[in-house]
Nucleic acid binder design. Structure first.
Lengths: 230, 230
DNA sequence: CGGCCAGTTGACGTCTTTCAACTTTGGTGG
DNA sequence: CCACCAAAGTTGAAAGACGTCAACTGGCCG
């Protein structure tokens, strides 16, 4: 599943969690603002307490690649633990966020004091490694339609909201956003969505996607679907 | 750079390192054998003491995707720290190897005893995350020729041997291997190498690649190269 | 009401894969 | 030592997926 199954605070007693929290500083970030900037010295590790954010990287020639979307309970910026490191990615709030941040010395002390915290961090990192390996495998072996289907089912699990006639991706999400997440172009995403719309699988509008038959998308993602032709 | 700059034992005193080593068990693995099997329960974390190995994943339909090649000093299988996990990748010895392995309980105790070990592990994991993010970015935005150029310069840094007229990738490496590493096919790799051979950039034979003008490859990898046409 | 931004869609080009036939290389056993 | 075989590599031709470009639509906000 997702990082969600394990947060930085999993298995901590309420008082331990409170202690860790009060050593960090809280910050409100409004929609559109950046929490970390690619290229800046990595001085803090973050915990997303509320809101959603996009973790992405910009190539030297300006193309954007999105790795994933973060939700409440996600941890990022762990690279700050290593002295002298630089953030390799940017994190942008896609809605208003509340974050907790700890600087290197603080998190080091907390880790020394609480073994479970270190275990959680290690698990979070190995989970990220696994997810990225999956992403590499997908990009290396799967075609655009499948990758888009996969991205949508992942987003549905992560931030889907059950509504009357399906599952709504509960976040503004443009064709361009989906293209950056799947390593393709907004044109290809648009064509694929149009096709699915005709088949009644999705219903989409401006920065809004509703999955009407999520099951069909899973079939496409796993290439079991009925041959997708008319 | 590479994981090499930081090994699991960095910053440990000789006696600390000896202690950690003697709590693990040593195993010889001969060329072609697997050190970890994708899908098996992840019970041990490994340190590659000698030799080279390939870290890869097989897709449900049998295609192989290679993430990277490991050399002496590399650590893998850190996912074993999380109880109940499954290895998401396989690691195959591409030459005879010596590995050290620790089971979950042992490594947990060692981590509790030695804070520096935990710091090293965290740094190793964040480095892996960074490398995988780079790999995703490359697959999402760069074309095959560039990805192949990049893979070769990386391999040259990692396991290149200076020889009379260039840098030799010091390991058997077929067109198929390079294809699995770059998310393309052996045919495309073959065509690209042929072209480079004509331009005198590389010299290649059966499972053997010699970089004659490494600089040119770097230019291609960074897309500064003179337009690559005849 | 006008402009802007997201989205759509056709036409076209190009990169890459796929398939097939062929050559080269290196190892092995007679 | 040589002949042979399997594995690795090469290359042409054709098809397919995807990107690029351009023109157009529609909703929304000031």
């Amino acid at each position: 599943m997702d990082t969600h199954e394990l947060s930085l605070f999993s298995g901590l007693t309420p008082s331990e969690e409170a202690d860790v929290r009060k050593h960090g500083w809280r910050r409100a970030v409004e929609r559109g603002a950046f929490i970390v900037h690619q290229g800046d010295p990595a001085t803090s590790i973050f915990y997303l307490d509320e809101g959603r954010a996009k973790l992405s990287q910009v190539t030297p020639d300006g193309q954007e690649v999105a790795f994933r979307y973060l939700g409440a309970g996600d941890t990022f910026g762990a690279i700050a633990i290593t002295p002298g490191a630089i953030y390799p990615v940017s994190v942008e709030a896609v809605e208003d966020c509340q974050v907790l941040a700890w600087d290197r010395d603080t998190i080091q002390k907390l880790l020394a004091k609480n073994a479970r915290l270190g275990l959680n961090l290690t698990t979070i990192l190995t989970t990220m490694v696994r997810q990225l390996q999956d992403q590499v495998r997908e990009l290396a072996t799967e075609r655009a339609e499948r990758r888009i289907a996969r991205a949508l089912t992942r987003l549905a699990r992560q931030m889907g909201r059950r509504v009357e006639n399906g599952i709504l991706i509960d976040m503004p999400l443009s064709r361009q956003d989906l293209a950056e997440l799947t390593g393709t172009t907004l044109y290809t995403v648009s064509r694929v969505l149009s096709q699915w719309e005709q088949q009644g699988i999705v219903e989409s509008g401006r920065e809004r996607i509703l999955l009407r038959i999520p099951h069909r998308l899973v079939l496409i993602a796993d290439d079991l679907g009925p041959p997708n032709k008319e």
